[in-house]
Each structure stands twice: as structure tokens, then as C-alpha cells.
């Protein structure tokens, strides 16, 4: 299964990202940032890689700043 991980500046951003994605009906989950990824924040947003475009659209539409998006095999 292929997952995506969005890295964000802070936990406040992570929680806002989770909230707006849930409101848009997306299945996302907050996880501790995987160790192999270098991030500013200990919490990251995990999503199904197939929904990558929608997730980024929703974040941009709600003006949630994020740093990077990575693809991970689970």
C-alpha cells in the first residue's frame, strides 16, 4: 500500500490540515513524522497516495501552509 505524508511547519498546521481534509471527506490521519523524513514538526499528515491531488487542493484552498509531500511504502 502506498501512502503519502505531508510535512507541515507545526502541530497547529497538522491539526488544521486534518480538520479541513476530514471536512472534505478525505481519509487522513495524524502520525508522528517518520524518522527517515526531515521535518520541522513531530507530527505529519498521512493520506492514501491516490488522493494526493485532492489533498493538496484542499490544503491550498484552505490556505494551510505545508512544506513537502512524500510517498512512502507501508
Amino acid at each position: 500500500m502506498s501512502y503519502g505524508v505531508v510535512l507541515v511547519p507545526s502541530t497547529s498546521h497538522a491539526i488544521r490540515a486534518e480538520r479541513v481534509c476530514h471536512l472534505a471527506g478525505l481519509k487522513v490521519k495524524l502520525i508522528p513524522t517518520p524518522r527517515q523524513l526531515s521535518s520541522n514538526c513531530g507530527t505529519a499528515l498521512r493520506f492514501d497516495w491516490e488522493e494526493r491531488e485532492t489533498v493538496e487542493q484542499v490544503l491550498r484552498a484552505n490556505k494551510v501552509d505545508y512544506d513537502e509531500v512524500h510517498q512512502l511504502e507501508w
Binding site: S10, T11, S12, A14, I15, L30, I31, P32, T33, G42, T43
Partner: peptide, 15 residues
């Protein structure tokens, strides 16, 4: 402590 750790109670405090 909100926003300091990635564990569930910390994330819940952040929420």
C-alpha cells in the same frame, strides 16, 4: 503537552 510530541495524548491536547 500540545504540539511537543507525536504521541496520541499530545496530539489530542493539540486538537
Amino acid at each position: 503537552n500540545p504540539g511537543r510530541s507525536g504521541h496520541r495524548p499530545s496530539v489530542e491536547a493539540g486538537r
